[in-house]
Each structure stands twice: as C-alpha cells, then as structure tokens.
C-alpha cells in the first residue's frame, strides 16, 4: 500500500467522442494529500475529473485508484468503488429533501446508510436542522454542503471536487475550504479543481496548473503561489 497512490493518472489522452481534449495528463494524489488543479476556463479541468469517473472516451493512458486500473469503468461502478464526486453544476437534487439527497448518494450501498447520514450531520451541523427541507430551498453555500455530504455517502477512497466555491460569498468560500481540510484530516484524499487559485493553493499540499489539456507546472502549493508566471496568470498580480 505504501507506494501506491490514492489516484494516479499517467499520460492520459481523452475526449468527448472523437475530439481529444486531454493531451497527456500526468497527475497523482497521495493518500494524505489535498491536491489542487488550477488553470484557465476551458483548460480541461472538469474533463480530467470526469475521465476518472468513466464519463469520457479514454484514448490512451492509465488511471488507477489505490493501484487498481479503473480505465473504462462505468460511472456507477466508479461510485461504488469509493469515488466521491461533486460536479461543478447541478450537484444536488433540488426537489428532494436533504436526507433524501444523502440517501441518493448512497444508492450503491446497502448497509450502514442511517449511520453514515448521522456522521454527515456531525460534519455539517447546519444540514441536520434542515434535514427535511428540500435542497432547492437552501442558500448556495448550504447547497454545496449538501452536495459534499451526498458525495461522501460512499466509503470514500478519494474525493473529487469541481469548483466547490464558484459563485459563493467570501465567507462561505472560506468555510468550504475549512470543511475540505477537515474531510481530509478524517483520512480522505482530495483532488480539488478551483478557479479561486490563491485560496485553493493555500489549502492544498500540492497543485497542478492545467493549460490547453496538459499540465504545464506542478509543485507545492506555496511554491506555486510564489511562482512569478503562475502569479501573473492566475493570481491577479500585476508584474
């Protein structure tokens, strides 16, 4: 176990149908890590995450979860094998209650569901009091909490978060980043896609910069923040 990675993507080429979007991605997540992917719009960040879930046509390359090859896996098998995926948009069922949303996250499980729901309510106390409210009635930040709790209902081997702070107020953004740290402390490796590059890199152990379907720069979170090129491209610095 010690030398296998939680997630290991090697020289991945993939796309939607015929069009190749990812042109050689190399990326890994260690068991204890939070890893961030940053990059401009349309770089292929969401596509990387979706390819792990089996939603893409994989042209070549390798994806392994805890050392097991998962290329060509069906999405329901990916979820069952312990991938907690929070999509960028449409990540809750708005007309289902919070509890029902969590139950849907546990569709592939048959045991331990009520216990897991209780654990989620401990992790997200705000959700507990509103558990019988429909998710569509919640604020943006709370919806994101539902989406994360729903994804964590499986026995998570890794969590994939696609821009969890997009469109949230700064207060909620910080809360989401704190929650991500807490989930990671509980032993879940995390791959985090973010527009909010600075806070993402501060939260993450390591980061990758993705441009036009391949990763250009990688390094420790703090090193990337200090990198002049990265700073100019993504962190809004002037020089």
């Amino acid at each position: 176990m010690s030398n296998t990675k939680a997630l290991d993507i090697v020289n991945l080429h993939a796309g939607y149908g015929e069009t190749e979007i990812l042109k050689g991605i190399n990326l890994n997540v260690e068991h204890s890590e939070i890893v961030a992917i940053i990059g401009p719009n349309g770089a292929g960040k969401s596509t990387v995450v979706k390819s792990v879930l089996g939603l893409l046509n994989i042209i070549s390359g390798n994806i392994s979860l805890n050392g097991n090859n998962i290329v060509g896996i069906a999405p329901d098998k990916a979820i069952k094998s312990g991938i907690s995926y929070v999509p960028q948009t449409h990540n809750i069922f708005p007309n289902l209650t919070i509890t029902e949303n969590l139950e849907m996250g546990a569709w592939t499980k048959s045991k331990g569901i009520p216990e897991r729901i209780q654990e989620m309510f401990e992790l997200f106390p705000d959700l507990k009091v509103k558990r019988n409210k429909v998710a569509g009635s919640l604020s943006g930040g709370q919806r994101q909490m539902v989406a994360m709790a729903k994804a964590l209902m499986v026995d998570s081997k890794i969590m994939l978060l696609d821009e969890p702070t997009a469109g949230l107020s700064p207060k909620f953004q910080s809360e989401i980043f704190r929650t991500i740290k807490r989930i990671n402390k509980n032993g879940v490796p995390i791959l985090l896609v973010e527009q909010n590059a600075k806070q993402a890199l501060e939260t993450a152990d390591r980061g990758y910069v993705l441009v036009d379907g391949s990763n250009k720069v990688e390094g420790k979170g703090q090193d990337l923040i200090n990198d002049r090129n990265v700073a100019r491209m993504f962190l809004g610095s002037k020089d």
């Binding site: 879930l53 939603l55 999405p75 329901d76 990916a78 979820i79 069952k80 995926y85 999509p87 449409h90 990540n91 809750i92 069922f93 708005p94 007309n95 289902l96 849907m104 996250g105 569709w107 592939t108 729903k150 499986v154």
Partner: peptide, 13 residues
C-alpha cells in the same frame, strides 16, 4: 426526474 446527469454520477441505476 430532477437531474438525470447527477443521477448517473450518483451511481443510480
């Protein structure tokens, strides 16, 4: 009925 895309990536059959 709410979201077929999310249903698929939630592992719903």
């Amino acid at each position: 009925s709410d979201s077929p895309e999310l249903a698929k990536v939630s592992g719903i059959d």
